[in-house]
């Protein structure tokens, strides 16, 4: 493991976010830990329903009832966000930590111009005067690649295409200069051709400002090209964590292997794309042992009774599996 010189920007430790519904307790996030250095890009990967969005919302302090952070710490810049009250959290949201939502069609308020919604961020978090705010907005729109930014300030969200709207959302997220950006499936709702453009834009934005980025996605292929490190979540738990390249080259957890195998580019020439058999189980009725056991080709008796601990691998990273795959040579 490389020695970390600077203290991590964010340290999530044993985070548990549970939802108390009538049908039982949904452990959407169940003991997740990771850390993040300034300027680092971390990918959080898993199938839909795996609780990965809730990690982002937990960090933002935007868990709504019946959800609750049951346990764990979220240390951001030396402060535990879990213990902050709502007022203190408001100063962190947007200013320190910003978030990009999945669907740009619904993330913008249809009744206000994008200029208004962009400027709101500056009004909330800076002391800039009206003229300075306006100029900053135009600058920011230009930066994210909106043509004729000055004229577009007065336009309403419905007058933009999906890709353009997501650029506006990125502009809103970045305009107050946050130190951490959380992007929750930022390109899933968009055309494939636009996805790559937006990913490049986001990468450029965070690198330019040394903003740390958490990319939450189900798309392991996309995130592997961007992220420094990757966390693989399954049913609210971390099953594997490691540096991108190492994780892609030699996954230790069968679930990571399964995700990799279902990426089309890795299987050119084969007639049929392998898929992980079965589906994500009902998170309210998880099996007693390893959650992945029912779908796992390597599962044994022990997997069905004993939850594997996350253990550090000698080559860096960590995995939670009783019978891990061979380490890459």
């Amino acid at each position: 493991m490389t020695a970390q010189t600077d203290a991590p920007l964010l340290r999530v430790c044993g985070l548990k976010t549970w939802f108390h519904t009538f049908g039982g307790v949904v452990k959407a996030v169940d003991g997740v830990s990771f850390d993040l250095s300034p300027g680092e890009i971390l990918g959080i990967v898993g199938e839909s329903g795996g609780g990965k969005s809730m990690v982002g919302f937990s960090i933002m302090g935007l868990i709504d009832k019946p959800g609750r952070i049951e346990a764990g710490e979220i240390i951001f810049d030396g402060r535990n966000l879990v213990s902050l009250d709502d007022n203190a959290m408001q100063a962190v949201r947007g200013r320190q930590i910003a978030m990009i939502f999945q669907d740009p069609m619904t993330a913008l308020n249809p009744l206000y111009t994008i200029g208004n919604q962009l400027e709101e961020m500056l009004t909330l978090h800076t002391d800039l005067g009206p003229q300075a705010r306006r100029e900053r907005c135009i600058e920011m729109l230009a930066e994210v690649g909106i043509p004729q930014p000055e004229a577009r300030l007065g336009a309403y969200p419905h007058q933009f295409s999906g890709g353009m709207r997501q650029r506006v959302v990125i502009a809103i997220a970045m305009i107050a200069g946050p130190r951490l950006l959380i992007a929750d499936e930022p390109t899933t709702a968009l055309d494939v051709t636009i996805q790559a453009q937006l990913l490049r834009l986001m990468k450029a934005q965070v690198e330019q400002r040394r903003t740390a980025l958490i990319m939450i996605t189900h798309d392991l292929a996309a995130v592997s090209q961007m992220a420094d490190r990757i966390v693989v979540l399954y049913c609210g738990r971390v099953v594997e964590i490691g540096a991108s390249a190492a994780l892609i080259a030699g996954p230790r957890h069968p679930y990571t292997r399964g995700l990799l195998d279902s990426i089309p580019a890795n299987h050119q020439g084969r007639s049929r794309l392998p898929q992980i058999p079965g589906t994500v189980p009902d998170i309210r009725k998880l099996p007693p042992g390893c959650s992945f056991a029912p779908r796992c080709p390597r599962a044994a008796e022990r997997c069905r009774s004993e939850i594997p601990e996350l253990t550090a691998a000698p080559a860096g990273g960590a995995f939670a599996c009783h019978f891990p795959l061979e380490a890459a040579p």
Binding site: D86, Q90, G94, M99, N109, V169
Partner: peptide, 29 residues
């Protein structure tokens, strides 16, 4: 319930502000 309300909260706006600026107008139309 809409996403833009959550997004407004993610921007760091106070709950009351979100309610009146982003909620009320949409609800009254």
């Amino acid at each position: 319930r809409q996403d833009y309300i959550k997004f407004a909260r993610a921007k760091g706006a106070a709950n009351r502000f979100v309610l009146f600026k982003h909620g009320l107008k949409n609800a009254l139309i």
